[in-house]
């Protein structure tokens, strides 16, 4: 937890820039629905805050992501056209993934300025706490979405994790 968080190379960001948003939004939507349905306590924990719109800003990616937990939706947007939101959370993709997988503490990332928060702070806390309790596993969720390709996908994600330094699966051992 003391090593600096990895940032995606700028070249990757440039290469991803022309990618179409619609298929990305479809994938993100399917993933969000799956996670919300597999972990219903996540939305329950958030109470009224689940109806807020959260703008996730992974600063090393070309897009902004708009999450609406109640509606179980997540959509991708161009940086030049930011959508309206109740709260914005910004930081490198690695910070979001490490927090989601229990590898990093959200408050510590905020104290160290790796993450920045604007807007409805209470809603952001509710989201952070609900996700922390759900013990999500992105690699597992993606594998579950990909049917017969689950095995090869898990292998590919493990390789990507090693190469990029991103945390792509739940950290069962916090050491």
């Amino acid at each position: 937890m003391t090593a600096p968080l990895p940032r995606l190379p700028h070249a990757l960001r440039l290469a991803a820039l022309p990618l179409p948003l619609r298929p990305l939004s479809l994938l993100l939507g399917a993933l969000t629905r799956r996670m919300a349905q597999a972990h219903p306590e996540m939305t329950r924990r958030m109470g009224d805050h689940a109806d807020r719109h959260f703008l996730i800003d992974p600063v090393d990616l070309p897009w902004l992501l708009l999450l609406h937990p109640q509606g179980q939706t997540m959509t991708a947007h161009r940086r030049s056209r930011p959508p309206a939101c109740d709260a914005r959370i910004a930081g490198p993709l690695s910070a979001f993934l490490a927090m989601m997988h229990g590898a990093e503490d959200g408050d510590a990332l905020f104290f160290s300025r790796d993450l920045a928060v604007e807007g409805d702070t209470a809603a952001v806390l509710a989201l952070r706490n609900a996700i922390d309790d759900a013990e999500l596993d992105l690699a597992g969720e993606l594998a579950a979405l990909s049917g017969p390709l689950a095995g090869p996908l898990r292998q590919a994600l493990l390789r990507a994790e090693r190469a990029s330094g991103l945390t792509l699966h739940r950290q069962d051992d916090f050491a």
Partner: peptide, 13 residues
């Protein structure tokens, strides 16, 4: 109690 499970695990250990 307002901190994450990552904090809890590290501090407790």
């Amino acid at each position: 109690r307002q901190r994450s499970r990552a904090y809890v695990a590290q501090v407790v250990r």
